[in-house]
C-alpha cells in the first residue's frame, strides 16, 4: 500500500472540531508531547470564556451571508442549519460523528457539523451544499457527481461532495487508493463508492 495514504507525522492537526482532532488532543492529554500546546489552548479558552445559558442570538456566516439564529449553547451547527435556518441540504445520518452526512466546510476545512456547537462556529466561514454552486452553475464536484452517478438516494451526497471538495484541496485525492482512504469518513449505504471515487478523482486530476 502506498505511503501517501496517511498524513506525514509532522502534519499539524486540522483546526476543526472533528472527532479526528478530538481524539488526537485527547491522546495528547496522556502524552507529554502535546502538553505545551494544550496548556496554551486552555489559557486561550479561559480568556474568552463566559457563561452562556438559554437561547441567545448567534451570528453565523453561512455561504457568504451573515445569518442570525436564536439558539441555546447546546445546539449543534447541524441542528442550527437544519432545524432553524431551513438549510436542510446538510443531512443527519447519525448525529455522532460516525457517518459524515453532516459534513460542511468551516474556514475551508471539512467538519462534522453534528459534532460542532453552533456557538463555536461564530466568526468562521461556513459553506454548506446550498452555497457551493454559483447560481445555476454547478461546482465542478457537483457536476462530476452528476456525471459519474456518484449517488443513488442522495442522502449522503451533500456530505460526500463537500468532503470531496476538501479532499482535493488537501491534496488527498492524488491516487485512487489515497482518495478511497481519505473519503472513507463519509458512509454511503447505497454503495456508490466506485462512482464517488471516479467523480472526486476526475476533479482532482483537473485541479
Amino acid at each position: 500500500m502506498s505511503s501517501d495514504l496517511f498524513p506525514p507525522a509532522d502534519t499539524p492537526p486540522p483546526a476543526d472540531d472533528s472527532r479526528r482532532t478530538f481524539m488526537k488532543q485527547a491522546g495528547g492529554i496522556f502524552g507529554f508531547a502535546l502538553a505545551a500546546p494544550l496548556a496554551g489552548q486552555a489559557e486561550r479558552l479561559t480568556a474568552y470564556s463566559k457563561t452562556v445559558t438559554g437561547a441567545t442570538t448567534l451570528t453565523l456566516r453561512i455561504n457568504g451571508q451573515p445569518r442570525t439564529v436564536q439558539a441555546e449553547p447546546r445546539v449543534t451547527l447541524l441542528d442550527a442549519l437544519r432545524e432553524r435556518l431551513d438549510l436542510t441540504g446538510t443531512k443527519k445520518g447519525c448525529d455522532h460523528g460516525q457517518c459524515g452526512a453532516c459534513t460542511v466546510l468551516v474556514d475551508g476545512k471539512r467538519v462534522n457539523s453534528c459534532l460542532t456547537l453552533a456557538i463555536t462556529a461564530q466568526g468562521k466561514e461556513i459553506t454548506t451544499i446550498e452555497g457551493l454552486a454559483k447560481g445555476d452553475e454547478l461546482h465542478p464536484m457537483q457536476a462530476a457527481f452528476l456525471k459519474h452517478d456518484g449517488f443513488q438516494c442522495g442522502y449522503c451526497t451533500p456530505g460526500q461532495i463537500l468532503s470531496g471538495v476538501a479532499c482535493v484541496q488537501e491534496g488527498h485525492a492524488k491516487t485512487d487508493d489515497q482518495c478511497r482512504e481519505w473519503m472513507s469518513g463519509n458512509l454511503c449505504r447505497c454503495g456508490a463508492y466506485a462512482n464517488i471515487l471516479a467523480a472526486v478523482r476526475e476533479v482532482a486530476d483537473k485541479a
Partner: peptide, 14 residues
C-alpha cells in the same frame, strides 16, 4: 440529480 447535488431535494424530516 440536480436537486440531490445542490441540497434542494427535500426528504421527509425537512
Amino acid at each position: 440529480g440536480w436537486a440531490k447535488v445542490t441540497g434542494h431535494a427535500k426528504y421527509s424530516a425537512e
